[in-house]
Amino acid sequence: MRSLLVISAGLSQPSSSRRLADMLAEATRAKISARGEGAQIDVIEIRDLAYELATAMTDRTAPTPSLAQAKQRVAEADGLIAVTPVFQGSYSGLFKMFFDTLEPHALDGLPTIIAATAGSSRHALILDYALRPLFNQLHASVVPTGVFQAAEDLGTPEGERFTARIERSAIQLADQMVTPRDRVAGIAGDFSGRGGRSTIRLSKENFIPLEKLLEGYGK
Rank of each mutant, 00 (worst) to 15 (best):
R2V: 12
V6M: 01
A9C: 03
A9N: 06
S12Y: 00
Q13F: 03
S17V: 00
S17M: 01
R18V: 00
R19A: 15
T28S: 13
I32Q: 08
A39R: 07
I41A: 11
D42A: 13
I44T: 01
D48W: 03
A50H: 08
A54L: 12
P65K: 10
S66H: 03
A68V: 07
A77G: 08
G79H: 07
L80G: 02
A82Q: 09
E103A: 15
P104F: 12
L107M: 13
G109Q: 07
A115H: 06
A115Q: 05
A118C: 12
S120I: 01
R122P: 01
L125H: 08
I126K: 07
L127Q: 10
D128I: 11
D128G: 14
A130T: 11
L134D: 01
L138P: 05
L138R: 12
V143S: 07
V143A: 06
V143W: 08
A150F: 02
T156I: 01
G159V: 10
G159I: 10
E160M: 07
E167A: 15
R168T: 15
R168P: 00
S169G: 07
A170Q: 03
Q172T: 04
M177V: 10
T179Y: 02
A185H: 13
I187R: 13
A188R: 14
S192V: 05
G196Y: 12
G196I: 11
N206T: 15
P209M: 10
L210A: 15
K212C: 00
G218I: 05
